[in-house]
Write a protein that binds this DNA or RNA. Sequence first.
DNA 1: ATTTTACGAAACCAAATAGTTGCATATATT
DNA 2: AATATATGCAACTATTTGGTTTCGTAAAAT
Lengths: 106, 106
Amino acid sequence: MRRDVFQAIADPKRRAIIALIAVQAMTPNAIAENFNTSRQSISKHLKILSECDLVKQEQQGREIHYSLKIEKLKEVDAWIEQYRQIWESRFDQLDNVLSNLKKDKK
Amino acid sequence: MRRDVFQAIADPKRRAIIALIAVQAMTPNAIAENFNTSRQSISKHLKILSECDLVKQEQQGREIHYSLKIEKLKEVDAWIEQYRQIWESRFDQLDNVLSNLKKDKK
DNA sequence: ATTTTACGAAACCAAATAGTTGCATATATT
DNA sequence: AATATATGCAACTATTTGGTTTCGTAAAAT
């Protein structure tokens, strides 16, 4: 079973859950109320997010509050960073082309 | 069938393919040589990447050269951006705490 | 002209996934 | 003590996925 951040964020419902619990810790029931899905389905997604180390749990009585381990998303940021550098350098190249054109005009 | 960038980058082999063709356009066969998988399996991944609008093809004789549509990855960057803001602001808060501690020392 | 090469497409398979239903358990509420 | 609530877990199903095998086609090499 593959378990990494990229697999975790592949599902749109999980991305929605991430967006919710990034703001504040929430119980599975509270999360489920925000979608039209069953609590169990949310629980399953939370389990996957948990296995991917993207959420932390805090038990309060019979409630379990889930919140986002936002640091984990830095892995995605680190991955995209290399490509960001490529597209930024391409933009720089275009920039150079443009400024060279201006020079030539003078 | 879900087809978006997040689903495209969920598979580690597809991320490896992306890394390869980001540098230069490659044929399915050439890509396959970089892994120990069949050409057909690579072809399938390329098809998915194509459906997600992450690659462009260029036919040259009987060869088809695939290269990365790097702009598409900006969608991932845009998504992660909101969370980057959160962790950066948290870091700022920590920064404030630290500088306040320093002040108190004086 | 025949053979080899590069490729996509379809059929097939095993494993994984998303979801449901039906439990069991622990904590509140009455 | 009895009931209601919050949750996880296991079993089950349909769908999707990654991969292989087989085939057809078109271009290149012989």
